[in-house]
C-alpha cells in the first residue's frame, strides 16, 4: 500500500477499530452465554491489536507490531484458563447461561 493511500484510509481504519471494540463491549453486556461473552472479550482484545498495528504503520515504528505478539500470547493463556473454568461450571450446573449462575446475591 502506498503511503498516500494509507494516510487517506487512516481515519477509516481507526474507526473500524472503534466499531470492533464497541461491538465487543455490547456483546459482553447483552449476551448471556458465557462462551459468547468470552468471544466478545476476544473481539475487544483484537480491536486493540488492530489499533496497535495501524498506529505502528502510521508512526513508522516496529514497536506496535511487537506488542501484538505479547497480547496474543497473553490472550491464548487466558483462553486456556477461561475455557477450563467454563467446562467446570458446565459439569456442575449443566448450563453456561450466566443468568442461571446466581447463587451468590445480596
Amino acid at each position: 500500500m502506498s503511503n498516500q493511500g494509507f494516510v487517506d484510509l487512516f481515519p477509516l481504519l481507526i474507526g473500524l477499530c472503534g466499531v470492533l471494540f464497541t461491538l465487543g463491549v455490547i456483546g459482553v453486556l447483552v449476551r448471556r452465554n458465557a462462551i459468547v461473552i468470552f468471544m466478545s472479550v476476544e473481539l475487544m482484545l483484537n480491536a486493540a491489536n488492530l489499533a496497535f498495528i495501524i498506529f505502528a504503520r502510521a508512526l513508522n515504528q516496529i514497536d506496535g507490531q511487537i506488542f501484538v505478539f505479547f497480547v496474543m500470547v497473553v490472550a491464548a493463556a487466558e483462553v486456556a484458563v477461561g475455557l477450563a473454568l467454563i467446562v467446570t461450571i458446565f459439569r456442575t450446573k449443566q448450563s453456561i447461561n450466566v443468568d442461571s449462575i446466581n447463587s451468590l446475591k445480596g
Binding site: 467446570t88 461450571i89 449462575i101
Partner: peptide, 22 residues
C-alpha cells in the same frame, strides 16, 4: 461461580485496559 464471574469481568476489564494502551 466466583471464578467464572471474576474471570469474565476480569477479562472484560483487560480489554478496556488494552484498548486504552493502544
Amino acid at each position: 461461580e466466583a471464578a467464572l464471574k471474576y474471570f469474565l469481568l476480569g477479562a472484560f476489564a483487560s480489554g478496556f485496559l488494552l484498548f486504552g494502551i493502544a
